[in-house]
Design a protein around this nucleic acid. Structure first.
Lengths: 351, 351
DNA sequence: TGATGTTGCTTATACGCATTAGCACGTGCT
DNA sequence: AGCACGTGCTAATGCGTATAAGCAACATCA
């Protein structure tokens, strides 16, 4: 059980012996210190550096960390496994963004894959978690355990969430889904639509509630009726299409692109023309392959939001950087793509 | 520049004070030690455990590591960035496999994204690398710097490569591309084919040379002529198709599925029937979306090879586990999928 | 009544590094 | 000569943990 770490590796002391100096001197040379109290003349410095190069010495990061330095390690916690192909469309662009930021910043990424799964999501604060090996941590996931998030923030450990979070005090970079959704809905209203139906994801995640809020608030502002709302059932698009048809709405709003493809395929098979008979708005972007329809849709900057979160975390880790409290929570614009599935209403759904 | 690590966090000493015992006692309780020389009676143990639970104490992993313990951290080094969408089809299944093994083993993953890029690939052994924070490291990539790999193995740091490696002493789990390719080629020969053309990846990576060897060796064994070989140019499938046509071969062997889709699309547009006019063998599997053709192809167990490598690394980290030297290097079978693009030759390519 | 265990801890040390305080040895000035 | 000051280092300490070594109190046995 007891795992042995480390085989014997070169230490500063050994380097120091070879160079005929003390360990402290090696450390000073390594870190380029040159205070009034710690002066190393060029020649000594050169001698030490020569040995360092010859031996290929690399500092033990655990010791550095213990001695109170940062490690340039960014923790990444995903509330679900990140790489299974189901979750991949969700996490891949985020990890892509984080990776490129990390590369720029010279950081390594520590993925907390050991977190045990309780009630369907991973738990970060388990015993012997390796959280503190990282300088800070990014949090990814559709839904997060609010309790745990709260406790984590309270410990003072530097954390940044990818995506807006409702828990007070949690720094984040989010995407303005509400604004983007409003815009799309607004465009439909301007074209004369008055009747909406909403196929939504069944989740309490903030991004989901933001999209719903964008839809409902925009309709409220215009004094229009609330839309029919149905949770999507990935397993049964036929059923979903039946509900849409029954609603007699002229605009179908679908939260997931994938589901939009499935439902519209059924609709078109029944002879429904899009957008002539039914307009379709999609609140996410195509993952990879576009279907036959170029949906009028949102194009959330998912890669960018993760990259921005990583940069924000880096700023939090830099003690010289005083962050405006307003910058701790920010939202990126969520642009809409015109596409071809929105048109003025004509006759409603032809059954 | 100097990053501060750690905000003040609960230590064993503080726990010890609260429980009215020494720090050592806390450590002993935590690690469930009960040697002849270190006995803790139930009551004391209970008292300490109570405080531990109340405070939610978590050990500082850096200190544990420094004290000579393993961390349950598996390093993951990719020779190219792992998440950009281009590389994604390559790395995603591997990371998937590693993640699920890590989850089973209770390990976290440390991704060395900070490695600087030199000559097109990342360099692992740069100064201040965080390698030694991990207990061991998995190496992923089509091609690896042999020098660096050699040096790394020499340091005694536990490493396992995903994919066969030619560098002596490197433990790995690979895929038997040579065997799989032989099998496919053999099947074509049995059907009467005598003339092959090979569109191959332009790389010195071991998996690439293994596939080539599988093809050439099988033809040699049968005393058949060497095939025409052309490096694929992703940018110009038209040119590649021209070369294939010119070769008058009856079997086209293509290394990458993607490229096979592109080239056969052009061929079919010209009226070439597959497999009636031309048989096609593909040496990799469809990434996600299958094209119109169900290729006769290899189906390399890429997820599984990575998971197996992670498990092998875990065994190497377990001091109680004596690994057979034969188990340090192993190959997984690479099954073939029949598909529908291999048939007996009739008239060669109709130009 | 010592001698010898046994129990239940604590003390001390090491791990590798960063950092502060300070020492020995000049040199310049009065 | 005596003192201040600068130079070039080193010694010592602490970070939080694991663990070997040891110590005091008590029990057991001859």
């Amino acid at each position: 059980m007891t795992q042995r770490g480390e085989v014997g590796q070169l230490t500063q002391r050994q380097v120091a012996e070879r160079a005929g100096v003390s360990q402290a001197t090696v450390s000073l040379v390594l870190n380029g210190k040159a205070d009034a109290s710690t002066r190393i003349p060029k020649e000594t410095r050169a001698r030490v550096e020569k040995i360092l190069r010859e031996t290929g010495y690399v500092a033990n990061p655990a010791a550095r960390r213990l001695a109170g330095l940062g490690n340039k390690i960014v923790g990444v916690f995903t509330y679900e496994p990140a790489f299974p192909s189901e979750g991949q469309d969700f996490y891949a662009p985020l990890l892509n963004g984080i990776e490129s930021s990390a590369e720029e910043l010279g950081c390594d990424l520590l993925l907390f894959t050991s977190a045990p799964v309780v009630d369907g999501t991973r738990r970060l604060l388990h015993e012997n978690n390796r959280l503190r090996l990282a300088d800070g941590c990014l949090l990814l996931g559709r839904e997060m355990n609010r309790d745990e998030l709260h406790r984590l923030v309270e410990t003072g450990f530097p954390v940044v969430a990818v995506g807006r979070r409702d828990v007070p005090g949690v720094p984040y970079v989010g995407i303005d889904y509400a604004g983007g959704t409003s815009e799309l809905v607004s465009a439909a209203c301007e074209l004369g639509h008055r009747s909406f139906v909403y196929l939504h994801v069944d989740s309490q995640g903030e991004s989901v509630t933001d999209r719903r809020a964008g839809l409902l608030d925009e309709l409220d502002r215009r004094g229009m009726a609330r839309p029919r709302m149905h949770p999507m059932s990935a397993a049964d698009p036929v059923h979903d299409w039946a509900l849409v048809k029954a609603s007699k709405a002229t605009v179908l709003v679908v939260e997931s692109h994938e589901h939009a493809v499935a439902v519209t395929a059924i609709a078109r098979a029944e002879g429904v023309r899009i957008p002539e008979d039914l307009s379709v708005l999609v609140l996410s972007d195509a993952a990879r392959q576009a279907g036959p329809l170029d949906f009028t849709r949102l194009s959330p900057p998912r890669r960018e939001v993760a990259a921005a979160a990583a940069r924000l975390l880096a700023r939090r880790l830099d003690p010289d950087d005083e962050i405006d409290s307003g910058d701790l929570q920010s939202m990126l614009d969520c642009p809409a793509i015109p596409g071809t599935t929105l048109a003025a209403p004509r006759g409603g759904i032809v059954a």
